[in-house]
């Protein structure tokens, strides 16, 4: 049974990454394929803050997330908005944003490899056991899960119970109508893109406390996030949390019962199944 709890603990962190991606794609309409690099960058930041200044990763989020927010705001304003303005159809925007974020992905990955090298990184933060239902789990995992749950809960309250949160949800549903009711769509898009980046960075900081990371792993996490987003249905925050927990469980189950070498294959397998049978998402509503 311990794999269930392990899976849920892992899924908590995945949820934040996926919610970040779903905000960027669902609201700002940019499929940010460099989202994983954003996460890895946050891992390195947390590592650096912890080893150089003894700032623990939970506290580190307070520094890392606002920084990611600013960087992502700038990326949206200077790199993505010209594409939004230039593209005549949503298809063109899609192709352009895919190519541009691929560019971003490789540049960020290259810079991180250049700065930190291609090695594996890990550090010891709360690396002690905690007993739940008679099994031992890493305390850092549990803490990361709780932190992720708090952040996700705050986001949920923000999106559903504040004016600006409602505006962002309106843009997600229909940008044209949103602008008709005096919502500043370009600003809401930039905000959602930046917020998505900040959430992903927060999850990166949490992940780094219990996960061995390296400069090359960004793409894997982008894929995981995509699988979750698509399973949930684009823009569906609650669905993303559920789907993330499902993915965490699936991965842990495969690693426990089949072969750890096949976890990523499991992710893709799940992804392919979802695309084939429920392309609108498990929780998404059918359009037709």
């Amino acid at each position: 049974m311990s794999f269930i709890i392990n899976g849920l603990l892992l899924g908590g962190t995945y949820a934040l990454i996926a919610v970040g991606l779903t905000l960027q794609y669902g609201v700002a309409r940019i499929m940010n394929l460099a989202n994983g690099e954003n996460l890895v960058f946050a891992c390195f930041m947390a590592f650096w803050l912890y080893t150089a200044f003894a700032i623990n990763p939970i506290l580190g989020i307070v520094i890392i997330a606002p920084m990611a927010f600013v960087i992502n705001w700038l990326i949206y304003s200077y790199a993505m908005r010209p594409l939004v303005n230039r593209s005549k159809t949503s298809g063109q925007l899609e192709v352009n944003s895919i190519l541009a974020t691929f560019g971003l992905l490789f540049i960020l990955k290259g810079l991180m490899k250049f700065s930190f090298g291609g090695g594996y990184f890990t550090y010891n933060y709360l690396a002690e056991g905690i007993s739940i239902f008679g099994h031992n789990y890493g305390l850092n995992r549990v803490v990361a899960f709780i932190a992720a749950a708090v952040i996700a809960g705050t986001l949920y309250l923000f999106l559903n119970y504040t004016r600006y949160g409602t505006a962002i949800r309106a843009v997600a549903v229909n940008p044209t109508s949103a602008s008709l009711v005096a919502i500043n769509v370009p600003r809401a898009s930039a905000f959602a893109f930046a917020l998505g980046g900040a959430l992903t960075a927060a999850s990166g900081a949490l992940l780094s406390s219990f996960y061995t990371f390296h400069a090359d792993m960004g793409m894997d996490f982008t894929m995981k996030a995509l699988v979750i987003v698509i399973m949930a249905g684009v823009g569906d925050v609650r669905g993303a949390v559920l789907a993330a927990l499902m993915l965490g469980l699936t991965e842990t189950a495969i690693a426990t019962f089949v072969d750890p070498g096949l976890t990523a294959a499991g992710t893709y397998g799940l992804f392919i199944l979802v695309l084939l049978f429920r392309p609108q998402g498990i929780f998404g509503r059918s359009n037709s």
Binding site: L99, G103, F106, I107, G110
Partner: peptide, 8 residues
């Protein structure tokens, strides 16, 4: 990697 990124 950087070259690929710049090319994109």
């Amino acid at each position: 990697s950087i070259v690929i990124g710049v090319a994109f």
